[in-house]
């Protein structure tokens, strides 16, 4: 099969490989829409002044999770969906022990790095299928997998469940 393949196709493949390698080497894409999340601190992949900035589209491209669960802040069962925290951390090449998560109102919570890696934690962008506005605790809401592990359902994790997230500092 390979022997029969045309030289043109081989060149195209080589080009594509090069393109990917370059984009990886040069870090993240640049956001095209409004920046909704900024990742700072120990990150190797950046796209603006040593920071990694994300718009909604970039986040939606990352591998995510959709889960239905009960939370103390919503009525009844709610469906949350959004990128996995570990995917975001991988995308920015983060290394560290703690994530300092800041909200729009300057509320700050310190989340262990392992919570992002070991748990199926997501930064929810959608609630019940609709994007979350600031008025609905958007644009990003750190949601622990309460549906997978009921033992998480306590104040310790509630206080880490930051809403209206604007920035993550990796330390």
């Amino acid at each position: 099969m390979l022997r029969k393949s045309s030289p043109l196709l081989a060149w195209a493949g080589l080009f594509l490989f090069f393109l990917f390698s370059v984009s990886e080497a040069f870090g993240l894409d640049r956001p095209t829409g409004d920046v909704i999340l900024t990742v700072t601190g120990n990150v190797s992949q950046t796209n603006a002044n040593g920071r990694a900035e994300f718009d909604l589209a970039m986040l939606e491209k990352l591998k995510g999770r959709t889960a239905t669960m009960q939370t103390p802040w919503t009525e009844g069962q709610s469906q949350f969906s959004g990128p996995l925290l570990r995917e975001i951390l991988a995308a920015v090449g983060a290394t560290g022990q703690t994530l300092k998560i800041r909200a729009l109102n300057d509320y700050v919570a310190y989340v262990p790095y392992s919570d992002g890696i070991e748990l199926q934690t997501i930064l929810a962008t959608h609630l019940n299928g609709s994007p979350m506005s600031v008025r609905d605790k958007g644009p990003l809401f750190l949601i622990y997998p309460f549906d997978l592990d009921p033992s998480l359902y306590n104040e310790k994790y509630f206080s880490r469940s930051v809403w209206q997230i604007s920035e993550i500092e990796v330390r």
Binding site: W73, V134, K137, Q164
Partner: peptide, 18 residues
């Protein structure tokens, strides 16, 4: 606008929260 939205979300939280 953001500050307005935050206040808005806050009043909703007070209203709906347990």
């Amino acid at each position: 606008v953001t500050r307005y939205d935050i206040v808005y979300s806050r009043i909703k939280t007070v209203e709906q929260g347990r």
